[in-house]
Design a binder for these strands. Structure first.
Length: 884
RNA sequence: GGGCGCAUAGCUCAGUGGGAGAGCGCUCGCUUCACACGCGAGAGGUCCCUGGUUCGAGCCCAGGUGCGCCCA
């Protein structure tokens, strides 16, 4: 109590660290594995990059998951939030390479072994920040068991999966066209490619035909013509039917190119005659395979032209070669046209460089067989995707899934468990590295490539629990209940987890997939460090730099105030309702206001109760005592908000859960219940004692309901309210049907309306705020609430009925009027304008309702209840008009 | 090229067939014995446009415009 007495504001900075420590120390976040997963609740966190730091997406997703986890823990369910980090192959390797460059070195200079060593050191140094940041957010992860996708047990799971899928024939090696990223010098998967609209020059080039005539092809990549092995037209294209089977001569090179027919060729693009470069265009590659065309690779993995491109071009960069090829063609008079052309160009999501499609020897995973049961799982509802709209996105992508290039020419990651024998040329895939070639005894060398990071991430929900061993953890927590993430990794990660989970464990890895909203910068762009549109969530908790886009108009931009973790959580959750939403600092401020409001409500209750000589706080038993109408109303509303909040959380509607609590705390608990019942505390005695019991009950219940969303302030207040143990481990409030009281709800909502109307009237007659206005209630339905009406509207009620002074004014309220008995200190004249406005409004309303009721078709066809309601409304409005 | 979503107050957003809402901002008032991160009262809207369904449309349907995202 004393701790609260002097402090008018809740100060998150003062209590957050201590509360986190108590939570973690309590062991509440670490459930002992036991029993069956059907009785448990588990969420596997999307593992953040080990060297990353918390961004707004993590903060939102962390808040979402923590609401779910805290709620279920309070329901008494054995609850585990599986924590860990991802080695994030390319991202991490690029960070370390950047550091090496700054030192004037490179990974190639120091060699693979030293480089990998260096990355581990980097991880030791910079890793783990994000886990500490999650603690600051209040995330109730199981910090005692942190996983890492490159840890030894995890690596065993990865090798096991590779070998198993290889044995099934799903993993294979192939020379295939891949997305080559010259920036990382590695192949990347289709999903890591980002298409960007760009304007290039579309050249039209004339190829002569053997035996006379010519074809004209259109291309934005003339340098690739050096690798052409055919010319194609659409088989339906009447113009060119006679060309098929003839031979074109490749300019500059002289190679003879068959003219073929293929459906892929669009007759209305360019001339309808297409050059085919199987080695450098994914579509041409497919056409080449269909027609058995040779593949001529003219661009190498270094992004330069190869020897096969021919002497003048070998060694040139792609752009140099383009200029040289065009110059040579122009010299021959073969460029018959050029025009600007807008098209989409593939870029590497990783390095930002332009993708160079080329043929490379890589490892692939065939996905169609794995996709089938994963599609079925979602179709049957075994896996639910929320919101529903994302379900279709998933199903459509899965239906057209393509092989996944899983090898990466990187050094940081899981090296493929493939061993080559140089003596006999054998290839061995094994869980444990063989000492020598099982066939000839020769020396073995392990595949240099590592696996795509997402390969190991795909195993996350079960590999973190000890799979492939049959561990107690696995039995206790797998399958997990929910996977929460943003939609940008639905394919990259979620779909692959579902496929791998079903394939390897026989069960989908989670029951629900919750796809949360993406929070954009205030200007509508995505939040990103590189765009300058990102903010550090901790800067909102502790106070931190405010980027210009988040400016409050001041120059220079200045900083964010320290809002505290609860404010951040409430704000983010309240924002994230529709698909994309712009960050609004006001919502964070609103969350802070809510925390403070709750804090002060509790502070008020406790300090007032403590002042009562008759009331001993320690022995007081908080319980619902529905004595007065406002008690009954409050307790009834409390049941409703309980049902509502529970349903919102269960339905993943966090925004409405957060906003609903705000409305309850401000609009019902503080503005009305506390205001209506204050005087009973001041009066003391038995009434004060009874009220105290109810008020404390209501506060405890409210604080518990709000805990999953704003855990810090509620945990702090729980202690002051005499709650047993930690609120994080307390029981989730249950609604009590017997406390629902619709009559009390009607009465109190009526008095609320009346108080508001009288206050508005007071304002219009310039009554001083504190002035008691003599009045009489000439309205029905205020038998139990009249005293409250008088107190809150500052009226001095005349005793007796009918007799007494003649009213000087009447304020229309539900059920009648409030008659004002004295004009002392009131400017009744000033109320004239208000009356006129009100009268005009009523007249319009009455007219509309009358017109409606005069409409025969309305009276005939609308439901009786609606018609009846309109009639009652008309009567009410006319009554109000008369009162004026 | 295909698909999905959005358009409501100055700003950020609720509102899925029956009297247009919240927070912030704005105006006016308030040392009302919890809270100025507060309290009270106000001003502010062609619910993007056109057409349709319906007794009745912000809400349902069609078309259009603008913006965003995903896939190819």
């Amino acid at each position: 109590m004393d701790a609260l007495a002097g402090r008018a504001r809740f100060d998150p900075a003062e209590v957050e660290a201590g509360i986190i420590a108590r939570w973690i120390q309590s062991g509440l976040f670490h459930p002992e594995p036991g029993g069956d997963s059907a009785d448990a609740y588990a969420i596997a966190i999307p593992p953040p990059n080990v060297t990353g730091s918390l961004h707004m997406g993590h903060a939102l997703n962390g808040s979402v998951q923590d609401v779910l986890v805290r709620y279920h823990r309070m329901r008494g369910i054995r609850t585990k939030w599986i924590l860990g980090t991802d080695h994030a192959g390319i991202a991490t390797q690029m960070q370390v390479e950047k550091a090496l460059r700054a030192e004037g070195s490179s990974r190639r200079e120091i060699g693979r072994e030293a480089f990998v060593e260096r990355v581990w050191e980097w991880r030791e140094h910079y890793g783990g920040t994000i886990v500490e940041q999650l603690k600051r957010l209040g995330a109730s992860c199981d910090y005692s068991e942190e996983r890492f996708t490159l840890d030894e047990p995890y690596a065993r799971a990865v090798a096991e999966v590779f070998v198993a899928l290889h044995e099934k024939g799903l993993i294979y090696r192939d020379r295939y066209i891949v997305n080559w990223d010259p920036g990382t010098r590695s192949a990347i998967s289709d999903l890591e490619v980002e298409e960007r609209e760009e304007t290039d020059t579309l050249y039209s080039i004339r190829y002569d035909l053997d035996g006379g005539g010519s074809v004209t092809i259109a291309t934005v990549r003339p340098e690739t013509m050096l690798g052409d092995t055919a010319v194609a037209v659409n088989p339906e294209d009447a113009r060119y039917g006679d060309l098929v089977g003839r031979t074109a001569i490749l300019p500059l090179i002289g190679r003879r190119l068959p003219v073929i027919a293929d459906d892929y060729v669009k007759s209305d693009f360019g001339t309808g005659q297409l050059k085919i470069t199987p080695a450098h265009d994914p579509n041409d590659f497919e056409i080449g395979r269909r027609h058995g065309l040779p593949q001529v690779s003219v661009i190498g993995e270094d992004g330069r032209m190869t020897a096969e491109a021919g002497a003048p071009y070998a060694g040139l960069t792609v752009m140099e070669a383009r200029a040289a090829v065009i110059a040579a063609l122009e010299a021959e008079g073969r460029v018959v046209g050029s025009e600007p052309y807008l098209h989409s160009v593939p870029y590497s999501h990783r390095s930002g460089e332009r993708i160079e499609p080329l043929i490379s020897l890589q490892w692939f995973m065939r996905m169609d067989e794995l996709a089938r049961p994963a599609i079925e799982a979602v179709q049957s509802g075994a896996v639910r995707i929320v919101p529903e709209s994302q379900r279709k996105v998933y199903l459509e992508w899965m239906a057209e899934i393509r092989p996944w290039c899983i090898s990466r020419q990187l050094w940081w990651g899981h090296r493929l468990p493939v061993y080559y024998c140089d003596s006999c040329g054998g290839e061995h895939v094994a869980r444990l590295a063989p000492q020598s070639c099982p066939e000839c005894g020769g020396a073995l060398r392990q595949e240099e490539d590592v696996l795509d990071t997402w390969f190991s991430s795909a195993l996350w929900p079960f590999a973190t629990l000890g799979w492939p061993e049959d561990t107690p953890q696995l039995r206790a927590f797998y399958p997990t209940n929910v996977l929460s993430t943003a939609r940008d990794i639905l394919f990259l990660w979620v779909a692959r987890m579902i496929m791998m989970g079903i394939e390897l464990t026989g069960r989908p890895p989670f029951r629900d997939v919750y796809i949360h909203a993406i929070i954009q910068a205030p200007d509508g762009r995505r939040m990103s460090k590189s765009l300058g549109t990102g903010i550090d969530p901790l800067g909102l908790i502790d106070g931190g730099p405010r980027p210009p886009v988040f400016g409050d108009g001041s120059h220079p931009p200045g900083s964010f105030p320290a809002y505290g973790a609860d404010a951040l959580r409430w704000g983010l959750l309240s924002m994230a309702s529709s698909q994309d939403v712009r960050f609004s600092e006001e919502r964070i401020a609103q969350g802070q206001a809510l925390s403070n409001k709750l804090y002060n409500a509790v502070r008020f209750a406790l300090t007032r109760i403590d002042e009562q000589p008759e009331v001993d706080l320690q022995s007081l038993c908080p319980q619902p005592l529905p004595l007065t109408v406002e008690d009954r109303w409050m307790l009834s509303r409390l049941q409703r908000i309980t049902v509502q909040t529970t349903a919102m959380i269960e339905g993943y509607d966090f925004s409405h859960a957060a906003l609903g609590l705000y409305d309850f705390v401000y609009g019902e608990l503080c503005d009305w219940y506390i205001e209506m019942s204050k005087h009973r505390l001041a009066a003391g005695g038995e009434g004060a004692r009874e009220l105290a019991a109810t008020l404390l009950h209501v506060l405890r219940h409210t604080v518990a309901l709000a805990h999953p969303i704003i855990p810090f302030v509620t945990e702090e207040l729980w202690g002051h309210l005499g709650g047993e143990g930690l609120l994080a481990g307390a029981e989730w409030p249950r609604p009590a049907d017997e406390l629902i009281d619709e009559e009390a709800e009607r009465q109190v909502s009526r008095v609320i309306e009346a108080v508001t109307l009288v206050r508005g009237w007071r304002d219009s007659v310039a009554a001083r705020p504190g002035q008691l206005v003599p009045a009489r209630i000439a309205a029905e339905g205020y038998e139990e609430t009249g005293a409250a009406l008088a107190r809150l509207a500052r009226l001095e009620l005349a005793s007796g009925n009918g007799a007494g002074p003649v009213p000087v004014a009447a304020v229309s309220v539900p059920g009648g009027t409030i008659e004002v008995l004295s004009e002392d200190g009131l400017d009744l004249h000033a109320a004239q304008r208000r009356r006129e406005a009100e009268s005009a409004r009523l007249a319009t309303e009455i007219e509309r309702v009358q017109a409606k009721l005069a409409n025969e078709r309305f009276v005939q066809r609308a439901p009786d209840a609606v018609v009846q309601a309109e009639r009652e409304k008309l009567a009410r409005l006319q009554g109000e008009m008369e009162a004026l």
